[in-house]
Amino acid sequence: MKEVVTHSYEETLSIAGDYAKTLPKGSVIGFVGGLGMGKTAFTTGFVKGLGIDADVSSPTFAICNDYIGKNDRVYHFDMYRVESWDDLYSTGFFDYIDTDAYILAEWSENIFGALPDDAIIIEIEKIDNDSRKFIFKSKSDYIGD
C-alpha cells in the first residue's frame, strides 16, 4: 500500500502522470471516492503522463471517454449509474477489459466484482479544499478493509 498527499490540482496531475509511466499496458484502476475528490483530475494527469494530448473530462453522461495517443489508449469509465450486470454490459466495459488499453473506472465500488484480480484501487480522501490523499491498494488489499 502506498499513500500520496497532494496539495493542489497541479500536484495531482504530476503524481498521476508519473504513476502512469510505471504501469504496464492493460492495467485497470478503480477509483473510490465521492464527488469532487479528484478522480477526473487524476485521470487527466494519467493521460498526460502517457503523452496523450487530450482534453480529459468526466465521463458522467458519456459513461466512457476514450483517449487515444500514438502508443497508448485510455478508457475512462463512470460507473456511478451502474446498478446491475446488465447495466455494466451496456457500458462496453467487458469489450475493453482484455485489451492493452488502460482502464480507469470512477465509482468502481459499483462494479467491484467485475474488476480483474490484479486491478489497482485508488481510494481518495479529501483533506481540505486543495489537498487530497491518494491511497493505492491492490484489489485483494481493498477487500480486506
Rank of each mutant, 00 (worst) to 15 (best):
Y75R: 15
A119D: 08
G113I: 06
I29G: 03
L23N: 03
D130N: 15
T43S: 11
C64I: 15
D72A: 08
R81A: 12
V47L: 14
D72F: 08
G17I: 06
W107V: 05
S131W: 04
T43W: 04
V82D: 04
V82G: 06
T22W: 03
S131H: 04
I52C: 13
I122M: 09
I52N: 14
F93N: 05
S90K: 15
K39T: 04
D86M: 10
V74P: 07
I68A: 08
I15H: 02
K39W: 00
E83I: 07
I103A: 00
D98Y: 13
A114N: 07
A54P: 11
S90P: 09
E106F: 00
W107F: 05
F31I: 00
K126Y: 06
S90Y: 13
S84L: 12
G69W: 01
G26C: 05
I103S: 01
A101K: 04
F136R: 06
D95E: 14
P59F: 08
A101S: 15
T12P: 09
I127A: 04
A54V: 11
T44K: 15
L50G: 11
D55L: 15
D87F: 12
Y9P: 01
I52G: 13
G17Y: 05
Y102D: 03
I111H: 04
M79Y: 07
G113M: 07
D117Q: 13
R81G: 12
G30A: 01
S84A: 09
M79N: 05
N71Q: 11
P116I: 04
G69T: 06
A119C: 10
S108G: 02
S57W: 06
I97A: 07
G113A: 07
T99K: 05
A20S: 15
E125R: 10
E123W: 08
N71Y: 11
S57K: 15
S90C: 11
I103P: 03
Y9L: 11
D118H: 14
K126W: 01
Y19F: 15
G34K: 07
A54T: 13
K25I: 03
I103K: 01
L50R: 12
T44N: 13
N129M: 15
F94M: 13
F136P: 03
T12S: 14
G36F: 02
W107N: 00
S14H: 15
K48G: 06
F46M: 13
S14R: 15
S57A: 12
R73A: 01
G113W: 06
A16S: 13
G34P: 03
S58A: 12
Y19E: 09
K126S: 11
N65A: 02
R132G: 01
Y67A: 00
G33Q: 03
V47D: 11
N110E: 02
I52L: 14
I135D: 00
Y80C: 04
I121K: 05
D100Q: 13
F134V: 02
K25V: 09
F46L: 13
C64M: 15
G92K: 10
